[in-house]
């Protein structure tokens, strides 16, 4: 092998080596960038998920304010003598967002009423007009009207807890009766009221009231002294603040 060709092959080897190194550098850089991007995604998502996990509304386990049934079918929850401010809750037991609001702010509403800071009026009605949602909604609203006004809140909470998934038939009369029995609501009159949909006319009247008189467009709708405060009501803290300002 001549000197020239030896030099050339050495140069080629060096060039090849450099190319290899350059490629390896690029690979390392690509991996580093990808790792950086993944880390950024993981941290951002992780922080929000963790923050949310620790933010469940504290359960309210204290005593409830007394509840009573009104002539129009609504249920008032208020400490004796408390007449203002008035917080009206328009809800449908089949409506997932209503269940959501119960989860996010239901405890706050109970606590505010128990502390005498607000008079709560529950106005369940039938939002849905198509089966199976309509039937579920109708049976639950009927049973909620059949149940007596005192100790009503526990049955109300149970209905949301047992809410059927979209597209499924649920809130069967037999189930409604057995859930009510857990809270001391039973007897032939109650069973017949549930089984025969005896409160159907009142459910319709409450539905008409919600749509036509109160101008409810969607559920849940939370009204404080006649003003729609649904946006604030999604957060227990914001709702408490709104009630504070209204009193």
């Amino acid at each position: 092998m001549g000197k020239a060709s030896r030099e050339r092959s050495a140069r080629e080897r060096i060039a090849e080596q450099r190319k290899l190194e350059a490629r390896r550098d690029k690979q390392v850089k690509t991996l580093a960038v990808a790792g950086g991007a993944l880390a950024l995604i993981a941290v951002a998502v992780g922080v929000v998920v963790m923050a949310d996990a620790g933010k469940d509304e504290p359960a309210y386990t204290g005593p409830l304010a007394p509840t009573s049934r009104q002539d129009d079918g609504s249920v008032v929850m208020a400490k004796e003598g408390v007449t203002a401010p008035v917080l009206e809750v328009y809800e449908d037991f089949q409506c997932p967002a209503c269940k959501g609001l119960e989860e996010s702010s239901g405890n706050t509403i109970k606590q505010l009423a128990a502390e005498g800071k607000v008079k709560v009026v529950y106005r369940p009605f039938r939002l849905f007009g198509q089966d199976p949602l309509k039937g579920n909604s109708e049976r639950a609203a009927n049973a909620a009207l059949c149940a007596p006004g005192d100790n009503w809140i526990k049955f109300h909470d149970r209905l949301f807890a047992e809410q059927p998934k979209e597209g499924k038939v649920g809130f069967e009369n037999a189930d409604l009766i057995s859930w009510a029995a857990d809270y001391g609501v039973s007897g032939a009159a109650f069973e017949s009221c549930v089984n025969n949909g005896e409160k159907g006319a009142q459910v319709q009247a409450m539905t008409d009231h919600a749509f036509n008189t109160a101008g409810v467009q969607s559920t849940p709708t939370i009204v404080l002294n006649g003003k729609n405060v649904t946006d604030q009501a999604w957060s227990g803290d914001d709702l408490a603040k709104a009630v504070q300002e209204a009193s």
């Binding site: 996990a53 967002a97 996010s104 979209e166």
Partner: peptide
Amino acid sequence: PVVLQRQAVDAYQILPEALVGPVGV
């Protein structure tokens, strides 16, 4: 509101209960 984010995921009825919250937010 967080509950609505959860509800949107829950409506698909695909994920187990425990994952609905984390995916929602």
